[in-house]
Amino acid sequence: MELFLQQLVNAIALGSVYSLAALGLTLVFGVLRIPNLAHGALYMIGAYVTYFALTSYGIPYIVAIGISAAVLALIGVIVERLVFHPLRNAPHTHHLIAAVGVLFFLQSGAQVLWGSEFREMPSPFTGIVNVFGLNIGQQRLVVIFASILVMVALYLFLKKTVPGQTIEAIEQDRTGASLVGIDANRVSMMTFAISAALAAIAASLVAPINLVFPTMGEALNLKVFAIIILGGLGSIPGAIVGGFALALAEVFSSTYISNAFSEAIGFLFLLVVLAVRPTGLFSKGA
């Protein structure tokens, strides 16, 4: 029972990271119909920015995450302008291929600049908290609470502020949104900025538990795609539910079945779901 609860907490922490990363991906897909295969690379760059802010400049952890989010938002805008904006009317395969190009560039760029060694990110939250007899690492609690905070903030931004509502408007009806004077270009840039910032926050939160290295985004990249397909491409609640569902499935299958199986389970589940429902579980009907 104790093992079960312990793993449950781990799964929730992992799930919040997955959800954050998947939210960014699903936003971009919902608004721009771009399956951004470079999302995992943005995630990885986000972890490095936080790492260097922490170790080279001695900036406090939380502030460093904020800096990383801001830097990645800028990178997101640059990628949108240089790569995806010129392709806005191209066939969908071109988006995917361009995203692969960005992925190549960022991942091998990180390898050239920073080497392929594994780096450990120091976090101030190293203690262990005792909650109802369970020993939980502080960092895991930080991950959970910070993720919830960011998700609530994102929700409020999308629902309660005008710029956020323009994103939803474009997602619902591109032509209609343009007719009432919403600048689709600005929304595209904003969406990419938010998406990349979310990836950076997710990576920076989980990095002290795992490690920082150039290919850290590879496995995650595939997983977040599995999540948003399960949750329905473009669906925000779907991304959150999917993120936690995948984390629970992974953590518990690795505890009770085997490690290898837990790595594959997300994809097996994805393949089964797509074989049965070719547009995902909660799709609005493609």
Partner: peptide, 14 residues
């Protein structure tokens, strides 16, 4: 290799 090829892919596809 890939640092050069990445942008080439993007330029080609655009």
């Amino acid at each position: 290799r890939l640092v050069i090829l990445g942008p080439i892919v993007v330029i080609l596809i655009i």
